[in-house]
Design a protein around this nucleic acid. Structure first.
Lengths: 168, 168
DNA sequence: GAAGATTGAATGTTCAATCTTT
DNA sequence: AAAGATTGAACATTCAATCTTC
């Protein structure tokens, strides 16, 4: 079966036979898949009256374990957003009473963000449903292919410099 | 080698061993790869004083072949943006003299957008470099794995409903 | 009345400048 | 002087409402 990107590649082949556009077969598909999946993910959160960026911040804190806190800089890196955007997001979560903000006692330039009990309850209530929703989004793929896809994407991420330091 | 998403999955395994978060191994990686690749793509256009959304519109028109024109609705579908955003983008390209706008004579509700000579020249000047840049972005991957990745992504897109009608 | 594009309001992001702490 | 977070301005996107054409 052909997808939208096959069509796009055909058009380029016809218009510019001199170009090898095969990189678009990977990059274009990743971009498109990302947007489609994002819509599917958003749908779940919308049903529960939450913005997906809100869950994103809460989940980042939640999975760090007790005391459910991270520095601003860690939130920036995890979400791949600007520090300005992170400040804005945390502002609004503080206003909703879902997180706390506090200067890091060890280095007062840093700001620590921590889940409040309400924030912890909310994220605990939503995670399982979120992962299930993601499972549904992928459910039409042959199950064998999912780990293969994950492995290739890991190789791509590493090749792009998204490596993870091993805990020494 | 491990990536950032491996780390994330470990954290969830530790915090919520009851959950099977494997879907994040696919969806999280696609989202992250998309953002990283986007940065790499933007870098090329920034060097040439162009916004990547500008190239995106121009290239969509270019690859449609003579007379290099599409309806507004086609541009919306190709870029996966709202019609409001499309109007805004076309407005600015018209102001720059890179595209023309005209009511479709067959159905005056539709609006046709067409490359101007200047727009055609610009996109012709940029395409090859853009594809080369994409090739560089993927160059650290074992060449064998790129078509495999593209095939799995096609399967995913199709499973998400991004199928392409075959020309009957 | 529905389809297709545009408008204005509301929202969220980045960029550059600023402030505090080291 | 550099690191880290915040602020305000500029800009881009979506949503809902509107206008025109079918």
């Amino acid at each position: 079966m052909r997808d939208t990107v096959d069509e796009l590649l055909d058009e380029w082949r016809q218009q510019r036979p001199d170009l090898d556009c095969s990189p678009m077969g990977v990059i274009g598909r990743i971009s498109r898949a990302s947007r489609l999946l994002e819509q599917g993910v958003n749908a779940y959160f919308a049903q529960h009256g939450v913005e997906s960026w809100e869950f994103d911040v809460l989940a980042t804190l939640r999975r760090s374990g007790k005391p459910y806190q991270r520095t601003m800089g860690e939130l920036v890196a995890a979400a791949m957003i600007s520090s300005a955007a992170a400040t804005n997001r945390v502002d609004r979560l503080v206003a909703k009473g879902l997180v706390d903000r506090e200067a890091d006692p060890d280095n007062r330039r840093r700001v620590l963000v921590r889940l409040t009990p309400a924030g912890l309850r909310l994220v605990n209530r939503l995670v399982a449903g979120h992962v299930d929703n993601e499972r549904h989004l992928l459910a039409q793929m042959p199950p064998r292919q999912l780990p293969e896809l994950a492995n290739l994407l890991r190789a791509l991420l590493v090749s792009l410099g998204d490596a993870q330091r091993r805990p020494t």
